[in-house]
Amino acid sequence: MPGIRSRITPPSTTGGPAVGPWKSARRTAGLVAFAWASAAGTTGLAYLTLGSEVIPIAVGVLLCLAFAVMLLLLHRAVWLTVLSAVPALFVLVGSVQYAPEAALEQRGVRESVVIVADTAAGTSSNNHRFTLRGTDGKELEEKLGFDGDAWAPKVGDRLDVMRDPEGAVPMEQADDVDAAGRLGGLVGGTVTWTLMAVLAGWRGHVRRRRGRDSLMYQLV
């Protein structure tokens, strides 16, 4: 009737129903919960599969990709999803490497050794496996692995290593064992994910209210 203002919410220009603030908040909270569950789950899996990083890496990559897809669907813009790859790397590396390094710190044996042989010596391979001799003059059964030539130790160098007496975790150079640093990267990456999810939820809600819930606007 003339003079009476309609209280019906105008439909979105994309033809979809308007999304209420509570629904957007629930979606955002769900994505935040998924981020923390992914980080915790991958870390727990790394503990269960100590000595084999293939499984936690594969699962962690899938969970990181799933987070990126859900972030895209929530935000409906690509740029924030692309940026999420940086904290995803911290989450993946931290969750996979924290467990073995924590195990080495808790039960590992520190020992001073000398490199007496290198499987990559005289070859073009960057995959080094060093034969080590302990202070008692005996060679260790376990070899120290090192990938790459940059900062690679040489035959004759003396190192301090951490080795697992149970043999579940590969030996590492003592200076490289930093469980606290891995945990800090894991938590920092997950917190950054959380902030991105909150930003995506807010901007996604605003975009839908303005009728910009369309892939044609996803780069904006």
Rank of each mutant, 00 (worst) to 15 (best):
R133A: 14
P165T: 07
G122L: 02
S124P: 03
R107C: 05
F90I: 02
V93D: 07
R133I: 11
W151D: 09
E111M: 05
E166S: 14
F130N: 11
E142M: 15
A102H: 13
V93I: 10
Y98Q: 00
S95P: 06
E141T: 14
D164R: 10
R110H: 06
A88C: 02
S95Q: 05
D136M: 15
M162E: 01
E139H: 04
G145T: 09
E139F: 02
A88K: 02
D157A: 14
D147L: 01
T123Q: 00
G108A: 10
H128R: 05
R158A: 13
K138F: 11
L104Y: 06
G156R: 08
A103H: 10
D164P: 04
R133N: 11
I115S: 02
S95C: 06
L92N: 08
R133H: 08
D118C: 07
A150W: 01
A152P: 13
G108M: 09
L140K: 12
A121P: 00
R107N: 04
G145A: 11
G167W: 07
N127M: 08
D147K: 06
L132N: 07
A103W: 11
L92R: 09
G94C: 11
S124A: 13
S95I: 05
G148H: 02
V96Y: 00
G167C: 00
R110N: 08
R133M: 13
V161H: 11
E142G: 11
D164N: 06
V114C: 14
A168Q: 13
E142T: 15
L132W: 07
G137P: 14
K143A: 13
E105I: 08
V116S: 06
W151S: 07
Y98V: 03
